[in-house]
Structures are given as structure tokens and as C-alpha cells.
Amino acid sequence: MAETEGQANDTKDNLNVNRFSNADVEYEGGSPNTNSWLFTLDELHDRTPSRLDGISYEGEVESRFKGINFIIMAASRLRLPHNTIFAASCYFHRFYIRKSFRKYHQYDIAATCLFIAAKSEETARRVKDVVIVCAKVAQKNDSAVIDEQSKEFWRWRDMILFNELVVLETICFDLEVANPYDILQDFVAELKLEERSTDVCRSSWKFLNDTCRSMAILAATPRELAVSAIYWGGVLLGKPITDEPNEEWYLNLKVPKEKIEIVCALMADAYKSRTGEQKYGTV
């Protein structure tokens, strides 16, 4: 830990500099953005700090799912937009690629990531408001009264402000996250998908919402996530994406099939987790 801190700081210099010109970036097999927060399936399966700490893969997937659920519930109560949710989810997943769920509770980190993302995405919320919403979501009780003098209020408040620095340091101060929703919109326009089927568009968008819950964020670039979302939308509704007999439309968008498969596999793992099952049924 001690040595990775400084090092990671130095090595992540060129991360995502190309974030805005995604559409023109040539695909080079690895990451077009030299995003060093991307990992292989093996790494995600067996070598995360939580796995090395004795937590099962399923256990980790479920904790992540729960944490992101927390972010989404709190964000909707704070009226935060989807890009803030996505950024918070990125911070959350990246945090646990370097720390174990044994040491940090998913709700604590979820709340902290949301607080930071609100600031970095220019949608800042007051600490007080974040604290109250988080306490309510954690209690699963929206009508709970959280007094500003209460022990609970101060526990959350101190926790968030303390962990803010821990999270920042752990995620190497990388706060700029490319937004896959914009890319999805571009692709939908490019493929004229809206005229073809609004349902496919809608389910793609929802799939993209759900990618936040899975480790797919750690395996694919926002561009690949967006393409996978369209792919999933088409498969789910049994609708072709283009007229061409060649089904591999995504190759034109310079995303290989293997990447889409990885994303879908990680998504399936998340849907299969116990919490996911209750929410979605098995896939």
C-alpha cells in the first residue's frame, strides 16, 4: 500500500486525455484512452484486494452491487443526474480495486464517492444534505427524522469527510471520468437507431445504467460500454441493429466482440448476485 501510493500517482499521467475525441480514436486492441484503470477478467476474478482477503468472488460482486444501489438511491433523493451517478460508481469500483471490502464498508465508501462526484461533476450538494439522505437510505426509511445534533448525523458526517481524503488518495485523484451516456447518444444517432426502435434505445440506456453496478466499468472503456449496451438492447428485444446482413455492426465502431462478451459476462455476474436476483430475477 505504502509504495503503491506514490507510484500510482506517477504512472497515471496520460489517463483519459483523449476523453473528448472518443469518436475519432483508433481502436488499438488495448485501451484507446490509455486508461490504466482497466483490468483483465482474471484480475477482476481472482486478484482484487477483497479476493486476496478471503472474500468470494460472488461476495465481492454482491457488495459492489449493494454499494452502487446505495449510490443510486441516495443520488435520486438528492436529485443528482446520471453522469454524477456514473462518476461516483467509477470512483467506487476503482476504490475497491485497491482496497478490501473487509476494511471499508460499501455504504461508507458509496456515500463518500457520491459526495465527491457531486463536486467534480459540478452538481455539488451540501454535506448536510448528503448526510441526511445517506442516513435515511441506510436505514431504508425515507421518513426517518435525522436530527442535525444526533449521534447518527455526526457519525455519517465525520465518516464522509474523513473518507473523502482516503478515497481521493486511493483513486489517485483521477476525478475526470468520460461519460458513456454521451457516447451512447452519438452512436444511437449514427446508427439511426431511434427511427428503428425506440425500445432498443431505451433498453440500451437502462443497460448502461446497470453497468454501473457491475465490474464492467473496470474492464471496458466508456465507448465499449456504450456499444455493449446497444448490443444488449438488440439481443434482449430480438431486434437487429442495422440492415446489413453482416451482424457485426460493432466492428465498424471499432469494438471487438470479445470486449462485448466480457462486459455482458460481468453484467450477468452482477444480475446473478443475491441482491441482483431479488431485484431482477435471474437472467
Binding site: S31, S36, T48
Partner: peptide, 14 residues
């Protein structure tokens, strides 16, 4: 990939 990955490592926290 240009940058090295932040290494995944078990922590040895007391």
C-alpha cells in the same frame, strides 16, 4: 497501454 496499472495488492494493515 502506456501507464502501468496501480498494482493489486493485499494490504498488510495491522
Amino acid at each position: 497501454m502506456k501507464g502501468r496499472k496501480p498494482s493489486i495488492k493485499a494490504e498488510s494493515v495491522a
